[in-house]
């Protein structure tokens, strides 16, 4: 087989691989795996660009499609995996001793499992010492999703979060049978002009 037909057959094979990769990307469920498939898709298309006598486009495609684009995807997907909870109630609702056990923890863990998110509970003293009135600002401006506090007068535990979040809706459903837990939802700030 001479050089020309070999290149022909390589081109056909690569196109076949491209179609398989495209079908795999469309049908796959886990977003993290698809990033690797995208990087390999970009590599295969760059090889096809070279076969089509366009090496400068191939260089651009490799730099952007295999390096920068998967980086952006990884950054954005990693920000969408966590559910951040701020624990202000300093008693045994979530932390018993030094370990994560306690009714609050079980509830939150089940909620995070349902949405395939990682639970990240923090009781950072800097954030805890902020005023109660700042809770709403905290939920909106930072990436804290839920604030757990204890109402001293009634003895109930209070979950505060945004009303627009689907997780808060589910949390409301889940805590309905519990009498000592109350859920407060913040509406989004009023619009400007």
């Amino acid at each position: 087989m001479d050089g020309a037909t070999m290149i022909e057959w390589t081109a056909y094979a690569l196109q076949g691989i491209l179609i398989l990769l495209a079908i795999a990307i469309v049908l796959h469920k886990n977003n993290g795996t698809i990033i690797i498939l995208i990087a390999s898709f970009s590599l295969v298309t760059a090889s096809l660009y070279i076969i089509n006598n366009a090496p400068d486009v191939a260089i651009a495609e490799i730099a952007i499609g295999s390096a920068i684009i998967p980086l952006i995807y990884v950054i954005s997907i990693s920000r969408q995996r966590e559910f951040i909870v701020l624990d202000r109630a300093m008693d045994e609702f979530i932390f018993i001793g030094d370990e994560l056990a306690g009714i609050g923890y079980v509830l939150l863990h089940r909620l995070a499992e349902y949405y395939h998110l990682e639970l990240n509970i923090t009781n950072d003293p800097g954030l805890c010492s902020l005023d109660e009135a700042m809770d709403r600002m905290l939920c909106e401006k930072t990436n804290v999703d839920l604030i757990v506090a204890k109402d001293e007068e009634t003895g109930k535990y209070v979950f505060k979060g945004k009303r627009s979040s689907t997780l808060m809706k589910k949390l409301q459903q889940m805590t309905q049978p519990f009498d000592n837990i109350e859920v407060i939802l913040f509406k989004d700030s009023e619009f400007g002009g």
């Binding site: 469309v26 298309t45 089509n52 499609g65």
Partner: peptide, 15 residues
């Protein structure tokens, strides 16, 4: 992801 696939396909067609 799908928009990326469409884009790469169109570029390959043109070349």
């Amino acid at each position: 992801f799908s928009v990326t696939i469409i884009e790469s396909g169109i570029i390959l067609l043109f070349l």
